[in-house]
Every structure is written in structure tokens, then in C-alpha cells.
């Protein structure tokens, strides 16, 4: 390594800058891939279409075209809107996504921050996006936006609970809140004394995984829980009045958050960056770990988007009923059973 690189890495600002860059890559790259693979191509396949084909081979550059289009558009502010709040709202939503990705490990040494309270931190900052959505809904000075914002807030607050409770099972089983340690616990775990494939928690915490997926779907406001943006009722909900770059930010936020939540789900339940058969301490994982993560993210998001393309939308009260009468009791039961089994075994 030459001198200036050493100096750069030994300084404080060097790694900090690198981390920021890494965060951007870790959020935007999967988001773009998800939009192309699922929104453009899988959705078209499901709906008997071929999707975008003109921009680039198999339409793979369509996303760039869309981004370029969004940048060319006029940034419209409704006349009665609260300008500052209206302008800031998309950034607040996107900020929560970037804070989320901080605690996600991509390899034994490839992480941004290794917090002891990693998953707790992630669940905490995921709720920040509600503020942004409420800001957008209120500041747009539109009834559709306001209704959409209120629906989103009610939904996100309600589904935070099953989300956290579903994670609790994993935390009890792993005995730690640290995301890196959760991965290691799965890598080094054993199923009835057999450690051939470790112990991915999807096997022992299947109920938790299912609840986590459902709650995640609701947190992401994807169908069947997309009332906040229900296009046949509220036009676009809290995004109705946005155009151009600010709409693009919401759009990125939607898919980036899907990607990051999928990362968290794969860390919690699918073993994160680890694959069976390789020593989890191996340096190899610093290279293939991100790729492994991406593969698992693709699997989780496949579930998310498959539901999105297939299912109709719940009504608001049915959504709340599902949450309070079904998901929360089951996840509480899951915690009790996990705790008892943890003590027994």
C-alpha cells in the first residue's frame, strides 16, 4: 500500500468518507437492481407483458432513463403548501433508510458500525420515516395527501409492534442484539447437535419470520397493505403532490427501504452474509459476503414483490384488525414458546 492511502485510512475523515460512500452504494445499488428485476421485469412477466425493452439490452438502462426524466421535470410546489416542510419531507423518509443500513453487516469485517444494540437501533430508526410521511401528507395541502399521510402513520405505528415482537424471538435465541453476533450465532448454531448447515433462524423461528415478513410488507406500504398510496382511492396518497426529483426520492425510498429491510430480514433469519460450508471467520466472506447478502435480499424481496403483484388491498380497519387480533397475539406466543424452549434446551 502506498503512503497516501495509509495516511488516508489512518485519519478519521478518510474512513468516515468511505463509510458514507459505502452506505450510498449499499442503499442505492440494491434499490436500482430491485426496480429493474422486479418492478420492470418480474411484474411484466406476471402480467403477461414484456416490460421495458428499448433502453439498453433488455431494457436494463430504463432506470437511468427514468431518473433522467425525473431530473428534467419541474419541481412543483402546490401554492398553498407549507414550502419548507414540503421540501424536506422526502429527505426525512430517505434518511431513515440510510440510518437503517448502518447496522447491517456484510461480512465478518465488512460493516459500517458494529453496535451492540444493532437490531434495536435499526427498529428505532425505521420509525423515523413516519415523520417524513406525515410531513409530506400535511404540507401538501391536499386532502388525498393528508388522508394518505394519516393512514400511513396509523399503519406504520401499528405494525412496528409485530415487527419488534417478531425480532424478539430471534434475539432470545441468539442471546444478543448485535447483528454481527446474530449472524455468528446462526453460523455456529446446531440443530439437535448437527451443525452441518448451522442454524438459520428461519428454521427455528419460522413463525417469527412469517410475522416479520407480513409486518415488513406493511411497514413498506406494499400491497396488500398499500392503503397510504392506494392509487384507486387516494391517487398516490402522501406522494400525490410531488413531482420531479422529490417524487424520485420517495420512489427510491420505497425500493431502498425494501432492500434494506430485506437485508435485515436475511441477517435475522437467513444467516446474513454467511453460507454453510465455509468457516464464518474466513476472510473470503469479506469479499463474497456482500454478494451472498444480495442473493438473500433478492430472495426476500421476491416474496415482497410477489405479494405486491398478486394481492388486492386490505381496508384500513381490516389491516388494524389483522395486526392487533392476529399478528400480535401470535408473536407474543412465539416469544413465550421461544423463551421456554431456550431455557429447556
Amino acid at each position: 500500500m502506498s503512503g497516501w492511502i495509509d495516511t488516508f485510512f489512518d485519519s478519521y475523515w478518510g474512513p468516515t468518507g468511505l463509510r458514507t460512500l459505502g452506505g450510498l452504494v449499499a442503499v442505492l445499488l440494491p434499490a436500482g437492481a430491485l426496480v429493474y428485476i422486479y418492478l420492470f421485469k418480474l411484474m411484466s412477466f406476471v402480467q403477461s407483458r414484456i416490460g421495458p425493452m428499448e433502453a439498453g439490452p433488455q431494457g436494463s438502462l430504463q432506470l437511468l432513463a427514468e431518473v433522467g426524466k425525473a431530473f428534467q421535470k419541474e419541481d412543483i410546489f402546490p401554492r398553498k403548501a407549507d414550502k419548507i416542510v414540503f421540501a424536506l419531507a422526502p429527505f426525512v423518509v430517505l434518511m431513515s433508510t440510510f440510518l437503517l443500513v448502518l447496522v447491517v453487516p456484510f461480512g465478518p469485517d465488512a460493516w459500517f458500525v458494529n453496535l451492540d444494540t444493532g437490531i434495536y437501533f435499526a427498529l428505532a430508526v425505521s420509525s423515523v420515516s413516519v415523520i417524513g410521511i406525515l410531513m409530506a401528507g400535511w404540507a401538501s395541502a391536499s386532502k388525498y395527501s393528508l388522508l394518505g399521510g394519516l393512514r400511513a402513520a396509523g399503519q406504520l405505528i401499528a405494525y412496528e409492534l409485530p415487527l419488534v415482537l417478531a425480532v424478539m424471538g430471534v434475539v432470545i435465541q441468539a442471546g444478543t442484539l448485535n447483528m454481527q453476533d446474530i449472524v455468528l450465532a446462526q453460523a455456529e448454531g446446531e440443530i439437535f447437535g448437527w451443525g452441518g448447515i448451522g442454524n438459520p433462524f428461519i428454521l427455528t423461528q419460522f413463525v417469527g419470520f412469517a410475522i416479520f415478513l407480513i409486518a415488513m410488507q406493511a411497514e413498506l406500504t406494499q400491497p396488500p397493505f398499500d392503503m397510504p398510496v392506494a392509487e384507486s382511492e387516494l391517487v398516490s396518497g402522501y406522494m400525490t403532490e410531488y413531482s420531479g426529483v422529490r417524487f424520485l426520492l420517495f420512489f427510491i425510498g420505497e425500493f431502498a427501504t425494501a432492500g434494506v429491510f430485506a437485508m435485515i430480514a436475511s441477517v435475522l433469519f437467513l444467516g446474513g452474509w454467511w453460507v454453510p460450508g465455509i468457516d464464518p471467520d474466513s476472510n473470503l466472506f469479506n469479499i463474497v459476503g456482500p454478494a451472498v447478502m444480495f442473493g438473500k435480499v433478492l430472495f426476500v424481496t421476491l416474496l415482497i414483490f410477489w405479494f405486491r403483484f398478486t394481492y388486492p388491498r386490505f381496508r384500513e380497519d381490516q389491516l388494524q384488525r389483522l395486526c392487533w387480533k392476529f399478528l400480535i397475539p401470535i408473536s407474543l406466543l412465539n416469544i413465550v414458546v421461544t423463551g421456554v424452549l431456550k431455557v429447556v434446551f
Binding site: 392506494a230 403483484f309 388491498r313
Partner: peptide, 13 residues
């Protein structure tokens, strides 16, 4: 009707 209840796929079919 699929679109009205929020499912996008039926209308393409």
C-alpha cells in the same frame, strides 16, 4: 374490479 381493490394484475389478464 381488481384495480379497484388494489390488485394490478387482473386487469392485464
Amino acid at each position: 374490479m381488481g384495480v379497484q381493490v388494489g390488485a394490478v394484475t387482473p386487469i392485464f389478464f
